[in-house]
Design a protein around this nucleic acid. Structure first.
Lengths: 148, 148
DNA sequence: AAAATATAATTTGAAGTTCAAACTATTTGA
DNA sequence: TCAAATAGTTTGAACTTCAAATTATATTTT
């Protein structure tokens, strides 16, 4: 009854990891270019992380992104120069720097979000995935597993 | 009956894209370090691509990796210096360069493979994924979709 | 309260990855 | 044959990231 051996499962997941992931990033990057947005995917990920982080200090954002605070500093420097974010010291604890999104960044994220939405819609349509409910459930578990 | 809205599905896939894949890459990179292997994940991906490419010329490998031939040249330069690959002109068509794996590379790939195997086993065990068959089928479709 | 320690962020210098464009060598086709 | 196409390499630049040194602020210890 089993159609996929463990070996095949490994191969498929490996493929997703090394090929598909990069391909999706490339597609998204191209989409930004097409829209005339002069940001790299890494920069968009930083913006996303800022949006999703409860208390968006340098440390918290870096932690979410899995990069060092030093790396984030340089990323924020350029995003600041380009007018996407603002930064200010936390008055409560002046060691902390709180980062905020400017309207220009919100626009990009909105754009990026709707691109994602479209991509996912077309995946589900073209894939003829009747069992999408189960796929999402599984992906969710996969996601949770790696967050442990 | 549907438990996940399209909005939630988008969120989960987005999470996989921007967080989980990077985390897996980091875990794999750490594993290489732990084993004393002085290669980056990109370099391992190049070795994998060489292994999987039918006729491993520079163009074919670069195409599989989705990078330019120029980028691959620099990657192969360092892998050559480190003693992982050999390169030689194709006698049939002396414009072509055929790349081959040296034993040192085969070892790394074996190591990397068994790490993957273990990782996937533990995913399936700890996730209690009774529906793993369907997950793989779905991931397979997802993979195929992006290869179009 | 002063000194020592811990925390938060920035700066600096270096390495790795990637690209585009210019260039070399070889093959193919008109 | 000679022009065009193909296969790779080289070069110079941009970007991402890190580790280590440094600065500033807060907390803890004595």
């Amino acid at each position: 009854m089993k159609k996929y051996s463990r070996e095949e499962a490994r191969k498929i997941i490996n493929e997703l990891l090394v090929e598909i992931f990069n391909r999706i990033l490339a597609i998204e990057g191209q989409n930004l270019k097409d829209k005339g947005i002069k940001l790299s995917m890494s920069e968009v990920h930083v913006l996303e992380a800022i949006e999703l982080t409860e208390e968006p200090t340098m440390s918290n954002i870096a932690k979410r992104l899995g990069i060092t605070i030093g790396s984030l500093t340089t990323a924020i420097n350029t995003l600041y120069q380009k007018g996407y974010v603002l930064r200010e010291r936390d008055p409560e604890d002046r060691r902390k720097v709180v980062v905020g999104l400017l309207p220009k960044a919100e626009e990009v994220l909105k754009e990026h979000d709707s691109f994602h939405e479209e991509m996912i819609d077309s995946i589900f349509e073209e894939m003829e995935l009747e069992k999408d409910e189960l796929l999402i459930e599984s992906l969710d578990k996969l996601s949770s597993y790696f967050k442990k």
